[in-house]
Write a protein that binds this DNA or RNA. Structure first.
Lengths: 230, 230
DNA sequence: GATCCCAGTTTTGCATTCATTTTCTCCGCG
DNA sequence: CGCGGAGAAAATGAATGCAAAACTGGGATC
């Protein structure tokens, strides 16, 4: 009935599945994130209902939530449109993410548990594997896990929630471009530096490196994004 | 049909009124924020429909959005409940807000326009008036405007959006306690210091003061919150 | 040839209806 | 007197129905 490649970046989000509409939210967000719905284009309810196999009620509920999240825009009496990826907006997302990651870095050393740290180290090993195999999409997924795990370590629900929202929006931009595989090595290196600081408990340096990693990644993505539109 | 005291902290949020359900979202969020719906209590749809003068469809759409925002929790087949104010969660909100305000402080001097600065100064004068009159609720409102104006100054939609969401949640906690009017003077003083740094263009100091103001406010509110529950 | 206008069709917003699930009530039983 | 359970009543999740608003495509007009 429904899809295979869900990207499964969800899970940690919260809210117990109140059943249908939650499913639709996730499906639709996935469809938009993967770029399967042309941005700026009108989204007819009937077609989506058919595609997702639900009636209009849960679909419309989902659209309201996605509108609140900023993935679609609801124009009264004129249907929903997929919000276009705007490089200024993406830049804004990275800027905000940088501020949050800086804070995460500052507090992480004193709050993370050994188990969590081991988990992060394991993810990093998988990232290295992906990089060796030049498996960009696997890398993207594990990279999300890496940063989500860092965020989870500070034990602050508001941060985890907000961070996850930011990541989801950024993922959309990321998938809209072809990420340069040569960047993977650099990213792995930066992660290594981050882990070194985490191991050393050097909060300030960790924060600094996280912020820098974020900024560099953001700049790379923005450059490609702007190039693509030009 | 609908209420007078809307607290009107909305407005800047976005999304063009797709009509009914947006109204319901705002109304219901206001009702919850003002504590008119006992926390932890089940939210009967029928009663709310009557109160708001709408049918179940837009009400349920609104509930879905508010669930995504974290104001209510949807339990499958068992209705929605108002999410209780949890002091740990409020602490988390303040921590995140601090990180964002720090970033705002760093970037504000180089981005704010003279007009915006004048606007903020005007708000501060009104805050002084409120403080003199010991008008706590007027103060709360203008205080929100003050901080929202600072956030707006950095011209980053993601920040404005996220910041506004945080403020809304914190407001709920704030209204749940009786804020000590003697704190108003201190708050005014801190604002004055913030403005001094802003005028001087001292980004680092501005960031520091904003973060400190946030932390102090948070601690005061948390103390009262914990006292109340004990 | 472009523009305007007006039926006819489609699509949307919301109310209502229907099928389940849950909750309440009340009675028998231990 | 408390406990458990059958059945009734109420509430929820989702589909359908209906009125109003927006598109569509001819045809007349300039």
């Amino acid at each position: 009935m429904s899809e295979g490649t869900t990207l499964s970046l969800d899970a940690a989000t919260g809210t117990p599945p109140s059943i249908l509409h939650i499913q639709v939210i996730d499906d639709l967000r996935g469809i938009i994130t993967r770029g399967e719905l042309a941005e700026g284009k009108r989204v007819p309810e009937a077609a989506l209902c058919e595609r997702l196999g639900v009636s209009r009620t849960p679909l419309r509920e989902a659209l309201k939530v996605l509108a609140a999240e900023g993935f679609v825009e609801l124009r009264p009496n004129r249907g929903a449109v997929v919000v276009p990826i705007d490089s200024d907006a993406v830049a804004a997302l990275f800027e905000l993410k940088g501020a949050i990651e800086y804070m995460i870095g500052l507090k992480l050393p004193e709050r993370i548990t050994p188990a969590e740290r081991a988990h992060i180290e394991a993810i990093q090993r998988r990232l290295v594997e992906c990089q060796k195999r030049a498996d960009a999409s696997g890398y993207t997924l594990e990279n999300h896990n890496f940063h989500a795990a860092l965020a989870a370590g500070i034990r602050n629900d508001a941060v985890v929630q907000t961070y996850s929202t930011l990541q989801r929006k950024i993922l959309r931009a990321r998938l809209a471009i072809n990420e340069d595989p040569s960047q993977l090595a650099r990213s792995v290196d930066e992660h290594e530096g981050i882990l070194t600081m985490l191991r050393a408990g050097a909060a300030r340096d960790l924060a600094f490196r996280l912020e820098k990693h974020n900024r560099r990644t953001g700049e790379a993505i923005l450059a490609q994004l702007r190039a693509k539109r030009a």
